[in-house]
Amino acid sequence: MHIFDAFHYQFIQRAFVAGCFIAVLCSTLGVFLVLRRLSLIGDGLAHVTFGSIAVGLMLRMEPMYTAIPLVMLSSLGILRLMEKARVYGDTAIGIISSLGIAAGIILVSLSGGFNVDLFSYLFGSILSVSNAEVITSVVLSIAVILTVFLFYHELVSITFDEECAKISGIKTRRLNAILILLTSLTVVLAMKVVGIMLVSAMLILPATAALQVAKSFKMSIVIAAAIAVFSVISGIWISFAADLPTGGTIIILNFIILMLILGYRAKKPLKAKPSIQSAAIK
């Protein structure tokens, strides 16, 4: 098959459009999440997505429309646990994600067990994405990217140092809520691309790879987005040509890129990485 033959199929075109937008979304938010040591929030919210999908399937509604509000509410629950109950982030994520999985298993069982629909959400099925899903993904992606653009400098500031950001008059609680709500929206959108099981990898891998080589914050977002888009396009094409699962192929490509960059960094490390207050001034 010629390399460009795949582009003639409408379902491949839809997959490219939805996949590229979601790739940019995941990688952009991923940079903030990785730096804030909240990488696993994607995994936790993906588990909640599983429960929310089960609700949608049980109520015979479009699962994305039940998942979006439920996952957003759960993400606020994680934030509330972290702020009010003084629970560490990983613990709060663990509590809410296990609740999501438990509720999902019970609901799936009540509605007659696992079926093809549920498996497509668990492992992704970007090649079966519908026109409506493409439009939803593009519109929501643009909304999320616009929000990140509007709050960009404030998000960078709270990511670097939340306390100083607060003393700079930045509404840190509001921004944390915005970041976590955007993440929940992204997780729901990305489940169709790589599946619930691999959503967190889309958030973590491109961002981690970009952070190894970026020379500024903006550059790290651009590099992460480029890696994610490249992985999605190549992953869709390779999976189509070699008859492989698309979600898994995209993630493996992301992983290979990360390994290549880590290898490059091992040969050409940055000059020094001391922690603040650990060295004397020259």
Binding site: C164, A210, S216, F217, M219
Partner: peptide, 16 residues
Amino acid sequence: YLPQKILSFNPNFPAT
């Protein structure tokens, strides 16, 4: 404000 230390300073933070 100059804090005593940045609570979660990340040496990989990609800001100039």
